[in-house]
Write a protein that binds this DNA or RNA. Structure first.
Lengths: 335, 335
DNA sequence: CTGAAAGCGCTTACAG
DNA sequence: CTGAAAGCGCTTACAG
């Protein structure tokens, strides 16, 4: 069924039907009601493709998830993010097109996606600092927003949490409990969340007048296995506590510590970041920083939609709040 | 840039350029080459929306994930599925539109999505048996395919594994090891995977001439917490072994058994289904049925694309192979 | 093998 | 407030 038929049945022009559909104010109440009644009765759905071509906007957002991210299968980060983006899009009459991007996509592939006009804007999740897509996005004049800030591209819009201060806060919590020899399992050094959380760790030590011992800093990859491997390297250095930059890595670290015959928190305390659903169920439960992942996805989508509706050269920056969640793994109870 | 400009620069008509783009055979080699060269040089991308409107197909698949599924955040089932669908779509020049569906979507919402012509077909993942979307999909004449068979709608295409036989196989493995009092934590009774795996459990007992004790069958929901709760109810009934219908539930069950002061597999053996990445790292590692989740997503997308290109009233049914993976949780070593 | 023309189903100035 | 008309950027019979 097409708009034409509705027009005929209502005894008005296609223009008028179109206006009713698009909530244009310039339609008399009576006409509007009559047309609407017919639309309802026939359960008419405008053809989205035709609307897009004529209107110049598709009402579709692209959600890009870099495939290289090993995190994809080790915790519900992406499901939560997707849920947030999706529900915000639904609420604003938008759809989401998913693009699980191969890490070594060529520039041409990238351009194909950006230039094919099927999407109005892009939400780019947890990209690497040197992601070629980010470059392409900047060149193309496609509105986009990052989940996670970019350290050098200051004109880019993003939604993030204050990783630096949050990490500083949880390491300060360990320091306050009396731990001094504190190790960290960082995120990847080419991801901003990894960098910022490490910087927060350093800041806390600085605040207490302690040096950052390079031997106590090992890079991880946000996965459980990565956390296990990192902890293996740390354990001989006898830390009193460890800050893992993600809960998943903390789970790996807990497992390694147990395999080494040591106890958490008595022998080594452990804290982390994310507060994933499983963080409350580890043995012992994790003291961690809660960050609102689904919310970040939703806010990103909403902000992007707003950017498209109210173009404005200045970048949007949203920082969402985090929360320190204290459980048993930090040994609060014992100190 | 539009097709028109390419036509002008190549000195041919728009029709011819369109034919080159669409690999139509009726273009002379020389013309084809000349046009292609110009397309390359200008990095021209046809407007996908216009193509869709004119051509009648969008080359976009809808991937519908019912939100109600608590499983969404408890294991990487959906990430794996999404990855499979996405990579198959990329390989076949299709895009994927994600629809995280609210469980109580109204018929109208459903129709909106199906009738708006933005997608050519739908992959419906792990729906409930009485999913209204399935009804709507059948009414609308939109090609679609299920991940997981439907017990009564026999004319529907699907990709699945042989849940029944796979479950029977792993329970038979327990029986062969000498366990007799075997409990099961099932999946939801309104999901086919839950039903089929339970039936496989029953079939194995039947094969050994054992009755299925209703006290040893407890319904779970495919989540870790669900597994924990189910195991709490089972533990007082003193099973020798338990078959959980998913690894995530097995993790919950392991935790519960440990909390009860019992050991796996010495006091209670445990086996499960999925072989998720974490199944090899539980304590003890899980004996489980490996199923190819990403592959199922890819095959579903490919089959659907094939269905759209070669319409044919008879439904497609694909069964992917599984594999019994033996680790420590079944106690093989001790028997 | 190639081109002119109609058409896909809408939106949106423009004129009234 | 309403309608006739042009236009969005392609594809595809049709005719040659």
């Amino acid at each position: 069924m097409k708009l034409e038929e509705i027009a005929k049945l209502s005894g008005v022009s296609r223009s008028t039907v179109s206006r009713v559909i698009n909530r244009d104010a310039r339609v008399s109440p009576l006409t509007r009601e009559r047309v609407q009644e017919i639309i309802q009765r026939l359960n008419y759905q405008p053809n989205a493709v035709a609307r897009s071509l004529a209107g110049g906007r598709t009402h579709v957002l692209g959600l890009v998830i870099p495939m290289g991210v090993s995190r994809l299968f080790s915790d519900p980060y992406f499901p939560l993010l997707i849920q947030g983006v999706s529900s915000a899009c639904n609420a604003h009459d938008h759809s989401v097109m998913l693009w699980v991007a191969d890490p070594d996509y060529e520039r041409r592939t990238v351009r194909q996606v950006l230039n094919n006009k099927f999407i109005d804007g892009v939400v780019l999740a947890s990209s690497l600092l040197d992601d070629p897509l980010l470059e392409a996005l900047t060149d193309a004049d496609m509105p986009f927003i990052l989940i996670g800030r970019h350290p050098s591209k200051l004109q880019v819009s993003y939604v993030d949490v204050d990783n630096q201060n949050s990490a500083r806060e949880i390491v300060a919590h360990l320091l306050r409990l009396g731990y001094r020899r504190i190790a960290t399992i960082t995120g990847p050094h080419n991801m901003i969340a990894g960098i910022d959380r490490l910087e927060g760790y350093r800041a806390a030590l600085r605040q207490w007048g302690l040096p950052a011992d390079p031997d106590l800093i090992v890079e991880g990859d946000f996965t459980e296995d990565g956390g296990y491997a990192a902890m293996q390297r740390l354990i001989s250095r006898q830390p009193e506590a460890v800050f893992a930059a993600s809960d998943a890595m903390a789970v790996g670290a807990l497992r390694m510590i147990r395999d080494a015959g040591l106890r958490v928190p008595q022998d080594i305390a452990a804290v982390s970041f994310d507060d994933m659903p499983f963080a409350a169920r580890t043995e012992p439960p994790l003291t961690t920083i809660r960050q609102p992942i689904a919310r970040a996805g939703a806010v990103a989508a909403e902000t992007l939609i707003d950017m498209m509706e109210h173009p404005d050269p200045s970048p949007r920056r949203v920082i969402l709040p985090t929360e320190l969640v204290i459980r048993a793994s930090c040994g609060s109870a014992n100190r």
